[in-house]
């Protein structure tokens, strides 16, 4: 068998998380390649956020292992954190800071030189239509701007792998399309993007998706292939067919 581990960004082996007697993630086996846009789909409580938090080194697995960006998630979690960006389900921005202060705060966390962080932020934010010098507090920004600011903060240290947990929840149709343009551009620049979403049109934009149910992967593959296999016209129908 050819060794393809060099092109893999994530490989999990029976990755499992239990909270007491409840199993949130159940023997998950995934291989995700460099440069992929990979989607996690599933009903509320299926285990997406729990799986992602383990892959980010934020939560210890109960059993099983995973290698992410060449780090073992259990034993090299500190090193792992320097290689990945993570945007959580409720973005962790400081609402009473300005845009620039948030950028400076995160540059401290990721230990990026201030001048470099500011120039990275300047470029990304202007691309997304946000003024780094704005005096407005983050709390007064529309959700779409907060989302782009949160994304920027997760990119300051130029990670090769990005985890976006529901980046577009609550975002209107136009802003969602703009955000997906940014995701596509990041992937074109070679970043691997792991994303969760409850918008099934967005599932179509992923290279591959996994559908989770009660902690297990019940479907895995390219949207076109999965739709074909289950004879459905779109991902919305696929989701309703497999999950309800």
């Amino acid at each position: 068998m050819p060794d393809n581990s060099k092109s893999l960004m994530i490989q999990t082996t029976d990755l499992t998380k239990r909270f007491g007697r409840f199993t949130a993630v159940d023997k998950l086996n995934l291989s995700i390649e460099k440069g992929e846009i990979f989607g996690f789909l599933g009903a509320n409580g299926a285990g997406k956020t729990t799986a992602i938090r383990m892959l980010c080194g934020l939560l210890k697995p109960t059993s099983g292992t995973a290698v992410v960006a060449d780090c073992d998630i259990t034993h090299q979690s500190e090193q792992l954190k320097t290689r990945i960006g993570y945007m959580s389900q409720r973005f962790a921005l400081y609402e009473d800071l300005t845009v620039k202060e948030n950028v400076l705060f995160y540059s401290g966390i990721y230990q990026v030189e201030t001048s470099r962080a500011l120039s990275v932020a300047e470029e990304l934010l202007s691309e997304m239509g946000i003024d780094l010098g704005s005096k407005a507090l983050t709390s007064s920004l529309p959700l779409g701007f907060k989302q782009r600011l949160a994304l920027t903060c997760s990119l300051l240290h130029d990670p090769r792998l990005l985890f976006l947990d529901e980046p577009t929840s609550g975002v209107d149709p136009q802003a969602r399309r703009a955000f997906w343009n940014v995701i596509n551009r990041l992937a074109e620049k070679g970043k691997t993007v792991i994303v969760t979403t409850h918008f099934m049109d967005e599932a179509e934009y992923c290279h591959r998706v996994v559908i989770m149910q009660e902690g297990k992967a019940i479907a895995l593959g390219e949207p076109a292939v999965l739709k074909n296999e289950h004879s459905v016209p779109n991902m919305q129908q696929l989701f309703l067919k497999l999950v309800s």
Binding site: N44, S169, G170, H198, Q236, F239, L240
Partner: peptide, 13 residues
Amino acid sequence: DEPTYGVDPVSRQ
């Protein structure tokens, strides 16, 4: 106000 924020497709239906 945005009752279905983050709610999955089956539950939204």
